[in-house]
Design a protein around this nucleic acid. Structure first.
Length: 115
DNA sequence: GATATGACGTCAT
DNA sequence: CATGACGCCATAT
């Protein structure tokens, strides 16, 4: 057969899937999401996905250190939404140590050969 | 194929 | 802590 016209590369789907897993009241970061999805160097693409795919908990994705990357009204909106779901800000950023969501570890191989 | 872009990350100053 | 430079990498033109 000709070839699958990959209209939707796994990248966007994988990132979106990870973003959807972030529970209410918790947050993650662009880099962490990218890594969890299996694309450690694609932090920038996370933002693209947040813009493309509607319905994602976009407000739960922050920059490194728990800082909001959006600027202006958008940034305020993000902070507002997060605080509304229980995420507290401290010194202009979120304390990741307390609110970061840790994605479950991918299992390379079932119990046989761990390493 | 080349260039520009982006809600990034890290390091140096 | 603020700023600047550079690296990264899929998309869009």
């Amino acid at each position: 057969m000709k070839r699958t016209p990959d209209t939707k590369p796994p990248l966007a789907a994988a990132l979106a899937a990870m973003i959807r897993k972030i529970p209410r009241g918790q947050v993650s970061t662009y880099g962490a999401v990218a890594r969890a999805a299996g694309y450690p160097r694609c932090a920038r693409h996370v933002s693209k996905v947040l813009n493309q795919v509607p319905g994602l908990p976009w407000q739960r994705v922050l920059g490194s250190g728990g800082r909001i990357s959006l600027s202006g009204e958008h940034g305020l909106e993000q902070r507002f939404l997060l605080e509304a779901e229980g995420v507290r800000f401290k010194g202009g950023h979120v304390d990741l140590g307390s609110f970061e969501y840790h994605f479950p570890r991918s299992r390379r191989k079932p119990s046989s050969e761990r390493q």
